[in-house]
Amino acid sequence: MTISNKTKAFLGSSIVPLLLVIVWQYVASSGYVASFILPSPNQIIKTFVTNFVEKEYALHIAASLKRVLIGFLIGTVSGFSFGLLMGLSRTAEKIFGPFFNVIRQVPIIGFIPLIIMWFGVTELPRIIIITVAAFYPVTLNTFAGIRNVPKEYFELSSVYGYKGLKLIRRIVIPAALPSITTGITLALGMSWAMLMAAELFIQTYFGIGTRIQLGRDKFNMALVIVGIITVGALGFFMTTIVEQLAKALDRGKIIRKET
């Protein structure tokens, strides 16, 4: 019974995409629309296969992954430290909070022209953009997570003489962990989104964004679509991995949340 329900749900959700593909194939093969505007699904699969057979495509993917990983790691670590500082100290919050909140209003993409002028069209501005994208959500969620640690936990800690680093490591961070992992998951998504900005606006030889741009310059829609699918699929896998990691870290916390 459950299987048939699941099958039904699956069939239901595949109707629209299936219809789209059929209409797409029909329109593309009918010749009404030029193939560089609307390549057929067939063509895309071919482009996909040739791309992945070429060794070069792997290099593009590797370049993008490396970029995101570096920016994401720097942004996460610094965001965590900054969020921790503002979360633990009200004075630090009062000093840095207002400035942080104002700067945060500037859309990250807006920084691109400025940092290109400062650092040139190099890897550094690309990494900076991705780092900032990861920095904001981790800072905000670490801060909020710490501020929402129940007062009772601090009372308990003082009864048992937990202080300083021990208090932070044993009580504050574990209690704030769900919020922190949410921040890290968001940070990955933001880094991935800003990777595209970094690669599209700061020209580079290697990167998936470069490939998409190349498709546009060559009027090769199939190349563009293959790039889009690659970006979407990689983003999905990475987010899923981080989400699973977050879940694994969060073991046993569900009960606490419900009481």
Binding site: M196, G209, R216, M221, G232
Partner: peptide, 10 residues
């Protein structure tokens, strides 16, 4: 799953 900016060339 697709970053919004990736649509722009298309």
């Amino acid at each position: 799953q697709v970053p919004e900016l990736a649509w722009m060339p298309m």
